[in-house]
Each structure stands twice: as C-alpha cells, then as structure tokens.
C-alpha cells in the first residue's frame, strides 16, 4: 500500500515523542540524595527506626497508610514492632520527633523521586521547631 511509508514515519515520530522524557534526560540522572539524620534519630531507640531501615526506605508510605487507618478508624494508636517495642502511631509526634529535619530528610528524597505527598497540608511539619 502507498500509505506504508507514511504510517511507518508516523509511528516513528509517535514513539520518539512518547519517549521524550527518556532520551531527553539520558545520562543526566541526578545523584541519589543524601539524607541527614538528626542526632536524636541516631540515638533514640538505639538508632533504630520503627521497622528495619530497608523496609522503611521502600515501604514507609504503606506503613503510614496502615497507621492512619488504624488510628483514625480503629482507635488503635499503639504500634508494636517486630522486636516488641511500642510506638505511638503519629506522623507529627513520633516520626517527626526524630526526623525533625523534614527539609533534609523527607523532602530531599521526595524531591528526587518527584513525589509530592500532601501529608503536610494537614499534619504539622515542625512539631518542635528545631533546626
């Protein structure tokens, strides 16, 4: 068919356009962010987070979702982790108690991953106003 060339050209242009973000950013990957831990985060609870660090890195949003579901809907506010330690399930009052440096901890990674969680529209991001 005479349209063959047109179609192929069209497909190529389409693929090129669709793949724009990939080829445009090729080789320009930003370095992985370095997160800062506060002194409090390094010492509190022997420097351990509520769950293992690898888990927290990958799954903290799922954990927070379970927390909010439990606190808001089931009136259960205490989290018992795998070592049997208990924590108050509160973003502002527990997480940010250690990680009071939101800008150097939460935001760095969120900016890098280009995610904009709107937790802070409601939850106070500076419970202690430190640093």
């Amino acid at each position: 068919m005479s349209d063959k060339k047109l179609i192929i050209a069209g497909v190529v242009i389409f693929v090129a356009l669709i793949a724009f973000p990939f080829w445009f950013n090729m080789g320009k990957a930003a370095p992985a962010p370095e997160l800062k831990l506060t002194e409090h985060a390094k010492t509190a609870n022997d420097g351990k987070c509520v769950m293992p660090v690898d888990y927290m890195k990958a799954e903290h949003m799922q954990l927070l979702d379970v927390w909010r579901h439990s606190v808001v809907r089931n009136a259960e506010r205490t989290f018992v982790n795998t070592s049997g330690k208990e924590f108050n399930m509160s973003l502002s009052n527990t997480c940010l108690d250690c990680h009071s440096n939101k800008a150097d901890f939460c935001d760095r990674c969120h900016n890098y991953a280009s995610v904009r969680p709107y937790c802070w529209d409601c939850h106070i991001d500076n419970p202690k106003e430190t640093e």
Partner: peptide, 10 residues
Amino acid sequence: QHPTIGLKKA
C-alpha cells in the same frame, strides 16, 4: 526473633 507486628490501644 519476634513473629508479631501489632496495632493496639494505648
């Protein structure tokens, strides 16, 4: 070490 993760009331 500790098989349970739990959510409970204070």
